[in-house]
Simulated scan of single mutants.
Amino acid sequence: MSPSCSPVTVRSATRRPARRAVACAGVLLASVTTLVSLGALHAPPAAAATDTPAAAEAHTPEAASPAAPGAQPHSGAARVTAAVLDLDGTDPEPVVRGDDTPYDTASIVKLDILAALLLQAQDAGRHLTAQERALAAPMIQHSDNAAANTLWREIGLAPGLEAANKRLGLTATKGGPGGKWGLTRTTASDQIRLLRAVFDDGLTPQSGTAALTEASRGYIRTLMSRVAADQSWGVSAASGSGAALKNGWLQRNTTDLWDVNSVGRITAGGHRYLVAVLSDGSATMGQGVSLVEKTAKAAVASAAARA
C-alpha cells in the first residue's frame, strides 16, 4: 500500500507547504528503503553492542518490515546453545552446552554461502572470478548484505546451499525460503561441522569431509581472520590470541527480539578451538552479544577442563 502523508502542524502558515513536502518525502523515502532492504547496507554491529536497534541486519523483508499487526513481544527468556571442539584434543566430538536445536542463522550463513560458492567453482575447475572475490571479501569481513544477496542467488539459493552442505558433512541445516538467506536454520553442532570443513587439517575422506581444497580453505580462513574491527565480538571474547570468526544478528519482526550468533576458530591456553554459539530471544542486540560472549567463555573453559 502506498504511504499517505497526514497534515503537518506548523506555526507559520507561509511555511506549511515546504514542511509538508519534507514530511511526505521522508515517508516516501522510508517506504522505498523498506522495499529495497534486501540490497541495503546497514550500520555495523559495533553500535549494536550499545543496544542500537538501527544496527540490525535487515537482510530479509522479514527483518526489515514492521511487526505484524497484533504481534506481541515474546516474554520468555533468551535461549542459547554452544558447541566447542578442541582441535588439539583427543575427543573427535564437540562439547555441547544447551539444547542442540535449530536457530536462525542470520549472517553466519555467509560463511556457508562462501563455502558453497567455492565448491561450485572447484567443480567447474576454476578459481573465483574477480567479481566473486569482490563480493566474497566484504560479505565476510564487513557482513555486507548486498554481496550476500548476489552470491546467494549465484549458488542457487537454498537448494544450492543444501547440496554443498551435504558434501561438507552438515546434517541439520535448512536454507531460508526464497531470498531470505538470513532465515536459514541450523544447529550449533552443524556449525562445528562447517568449521571443521574449513579449519580441521586432520580431516580425510574417511574421517570426515575434505570437500574443500586447501586453497579454498585458506581463502576462507584469511577472510575470517581479517574481519573489520566492528565485527570483532562474539566467540573471540574467549580467545587468548588471534581469532577467525563470522557473526550474525537479526531482529525478528514477529517478536521484536534478537537472534545473535557467532562462530569461528579461537586459540586459548595453547589449544585451538572451534566454537559456535547460537542464541535467540534477547530483548536487545547488546544483551544478545553479552549472552553469546559469556556463553563462549564458559563453553571454552568447560572444554579446556576436559583436556
Results as ranks from 00 to 15, higher is better:
residue 239 S to T: 05
residue 199 F to Q: 00
residue 228 A to D: 14
residue 34 T to N: 12
residue 281 G to Y: 06
residue 145 N to F: 00
residue 78 A to Y: 05
residue 50 T to K: 11
residue 49 A to K: 04
residue 184 T to L: 00
residue 241 S to E: 13
residue 208 G to S: 07
residue 173 T to C: 00
residue 133 R to P: 00
residue 253 N to L: 06
residue 87 L to C: 07
residue 22 V to M: 09
residue 72 Q to D: 08
residue 300 V to S: 02
residue 68 A to S: 12
residue 11 R to G: 10
residue 242 G to H: 13
residue 31 S to F: 13
residue 102 P to C: 11
residue 6 S to Y: 13
residue 211 A to C: 06
residue 257 L to S: 13
residue 307 A to L: 07
residue 193 R to D: 07
residue 1 M to C: 11
residue 241 S to A: 14
residue 228 A to M: 06
residue 266 I to A: 01
residue 185 R to F: 09
residue 140 I to Y: 03
residue 216 S to K: 03
residue 233 W to L: 14
residue 98 G to K: 10
residue 241 S to M: 07
residue 48 A to F: 11
residue 252 R to P: 01
residue 173 T to N: 02
residue 141 Q to T: 14
residue 165 N to K: 12
residue 203 L to I: 03
residue 220 I to C: 02
residue 165 N to I: 07
residue 231 Q to E: 14
residue 258 W to Q: 03
residue 115 A to G: 06
residue 243 A to K: 11
residue 189 S to C: 06
residue 197 A to H: 05
residue 35 L to I: 09
residue 16 R to Q: 14
residue 183 L to R: 11
residue 272 R to D: 11
residue 239 S to C: 05
residue 243 A to F: 05
residue 252 R to C: 08
residue 271 H to L: 00
residue 25 A to K: 12
residue 257 L to T: 15
residue 13 A to F: 09
residue 48 A to V: 04
residue 184 T to D: 02
residue 278 L to P: 01
residue 37 S to C: 13
residue 294 K to Q: 15
residue 71 A to E: 13
residue 187 T to E: 01
residue 61 P to D: 06
residue 196 R to N: 03
residue 206 Q to V: 15
residue 193 R to Y: 08
residue 37 S to P: 06
residue 83 A to V: 02
residue 21 A to W: 10
residue 147 A to I: 00
residue 78 A to K: 04
residue 230 D to R: 10
residue 125 G to N: 12
residue 4 S to N: 08
residue 123 D to M: 09
residue 144 D to K: 02
residue 1 M to H: 11
residue 55 A to G: 05
residue 183 L to A: 08
residue 51 D to L: 05
residue 38 L to N: 15
residue 36 V to A: 12
residue 90 T to I: 04
residue 197 A to D: 00
residue 212 L to N: 02
residue 229 A to Y: 08
residue 3 P to T: 10
residue 232 S to Y: 10
residue 193 R to T: 08
residue 219 Y to H: 14
residue 21 A to Y: 12
residue 179 G to D: 12
residue 151 L to G: 03
residue 267 T to C: 01
residue 50 T to P: 02
residue 209 T to D: 09
residue 302 S to K: 12
residue 230 D to V: 09
residue 43 A to Y: 12
residue 195 L to Y: 10
residue 137 A to S: 07
residue 47 A to R: 13
residue 101 T to D: 15
residue 106 A to Y: 01
residue 267 T to F: 00
residue 155 I to Q: 03
residue 70 G to I: 07
residue 169 G to V: 00
residue 228 A to N: 12
residue 160 G to L: 01
residue 80 V to A: 05
residue 256 D to V: 10
residue 270 G to R: 10
residue 200 D to I: 02
residue 76 G to A: 14
residue 113 I to A: 02
residue 102 P to T: 15
residue 177 P to Q: 05
residue 166 K to T: 12
residue 40 A to C: 06
